[in-house]
């Protein structure tokens, strides 16, 4: 089965099975990945599902939408490939995807 790896700030890895139809935030929450809260349930309202997409995957998963961008733009841990994982709809083609978690979700 296709899988994604979440790498925590201190390098710890959590692998989770990818399921099309879910968002990446939901995948993390369903698998108990620490560091992704998803407080607002996926409305791009809280910013607690921030991930930094591994550079080589950035094109495949695509960039952020307008509201997402505004939420990210003020985040001190923002990177060029930052996304809100609740706005990322999982695709089967993402097998092997790696995303990094910031030190703090805000």
């Amino acid at each position: 089965m296709a899988a994604v790896t979440f790498v925590s700030h201190d390098g710890e890895k959590h692998e989770a099975p990818l399921e099309e139809g879910l968002t990446l935030m939901q995948v993390a929450v369903d698998n108990g990945v620490p560091g992704i809260d998803g407080d607002c349930g996926g409305e791009a309202a809280c910013g607690t599902c921030h991930v930094v997409v591994d550079a080589q995957w950035a094109d495949t998963v695509g960039g952020s939408g307008p509201v997402e961008e505004e939420m990210l733009s003020m985040n001190p841990e923002r990177q060029p490939t930052s996304r809100l994982s609740c706005q990322m709809n999982v695709s089967d083609g993402w097998d092997g995807l790696t995303v990094h978690l910031p030190e703090f979700q805000m």
Partner: peptide, 10 residues
């Protein structure tokens, strides 16, 4: 105003 929100939090 999501930007104001994130900025205000900080």
């Amino acid at each position: 105003r999501p930007r104001d929100f994130m900025r205000s939090k900080q």
